[in-house]
Simulated scan of single mutants.
Amino acid sequence: MSVSVLSPSRLLGDVSGILQAASLLILLLLLIKAAQLYLHRQWLLKALQQFPCPPSHWLFGHIQEFQQDQELQRIQKWVETFPSACPHWLWGGKVRVQLHDPDYMKVILGRSDPKSHGSYRFLAPWIGYGLLLLNGQTWFQHRRMLTPAFHYDILKPYVGLMADSVRVMLDKWEELLGQDSPLEVFQHVSLMTLDTIMKCAFSHQGSIQVDRPSDPTEEGSTTEGGGAGEDQEEEALGFSGHPPLGQRTTWTRCPTPPCALRRH
């Protein structure tokens, strides 16, 4: 009876051979992936050769041109230089075409091409496959079902309410522009959107934009009184004295707004 024992040198030689084979395999896969990215970039360059754009880095694209505090100025310069459309390279193999001409936008929006799954697929677990994520015949069926709800005759009464909310926002901008200071429009637009939804969907009387100051300095002064900030937040939401979270609130339809609010 003979017993064979592997020597340490032979064992190390086998491990070294496996590592060398794995390294060669990884290197081969990297070379194949690099070749695929190169061919994909060349295909994109050929497909977008009719749309001129500023010089871009082969790897970083146009990221270096867009500074955090100069992005809007750079976009305005691109619109003046390329009035129709301009490719925006995000990185080596990723490009986004920015459309500046309304005629170009009409052509794109009039097509029924399938949606890109690159960004929308992350929304599916939260919102499901509805009108935003569907394609093809299923999308047309859902769209046909929703078309009567968004008919112009139904939305026409709300146009005046939307215009009033926008007019209030523009009036506030005119007052703030006289202060010769930068104007952050995000919070103003958010309040205008909330104001429009409250008027159209909940028949809210008044204007949330007027009840709640959108200037951070004014908003900070209202919270100095302890509970004053909470009262102001309730007025901003349009539910002054609304019930706590554990208390259920139901809306009841009525022929004339505002609808009655019942608490249970």
Rank of each mutant, 00 (worst) to 15 (best):
V3H: 02
V3D: 02
S7M: 04
S7D: 11
R10M: 08
L11M: 10
G13V: 08
D14V: 15
D14A: 14
V15C: 10
L19T: 11
Q20T: 14
A21R: 14
A21V: 09
A21L: 14
I26D: 05
L28G: 12
L29Q: 11
L30S: 00
K33W: 08
L37Y: 07
R41S: 12
Q42F: 01
W43P: 00
W43R: 15
L44R: 11
L45M: 14
K46R: 15
Q49A: 15
F51V: 06
P54K: 03
L59A: 14
F60M: 11
H62G: 06
H62E: 03
Q64K: 07
E65Q: 14
Q67P: 09
L72R: 14
L72Y: 10
L72P: 05
W78S: 00
T81C: 02
P83M: 02
A85N: 01
C86H: 00
P87D: 08
H88K: 05
G92N: 10
R96Y: 06
V97L: 15
V97W: 02
Y104C: 07
K106W: 07
K106R: 15
R111C: 07
S112C: 05
G118Q: 06
Y120Q: 00
F122E: 05
F122R: 05
A124T: 10
P125D: 12
P125I: 09
P125Y: 10
W126R: 00
I127V: 13
G128C: 03
L133H: 04
L134M: 04
Q137P: 05
Q137A: 13
R143N: 09
L146G: 00
F150C: 01
H151E: 07
H151Q: 11
I154T: 11
I154W: 01
K156N: 09
P157K: 04
G160D: 12
L161Q: 13
M162L: 14
M162K: 02
S165Y: 06
V168E: 15
D171R: 15
Q179Y: 02
V185N: 07
F186C: 04
V189W: 12
V189T: 15
T193P: 05
L194M: 13
T196L: 03
T196V: 12
F202E: 02
F202T: 06
S203F: 07
I208F: 05
Q209W: 04
R212N: 06
E219R: 06
T222D: 01
G225P: 00
G225I: 01
G227S: 11
E230S: 09
E234P: 01
E234F: 14
E234A: 13
E235R: 12
L237Y: 02
G241C: 03
P244I: 07
P244L: 12
L245K: 13
G246E: 10
Q247L: 14
T249P: 03
T249Y: 13
T249N: 11
R253V: 01
P255Q: 10
P255D: 10
P255L: 05
P258Q: 08
A260W: 04
A260I: 10
R262T: 13
H264Y: 14
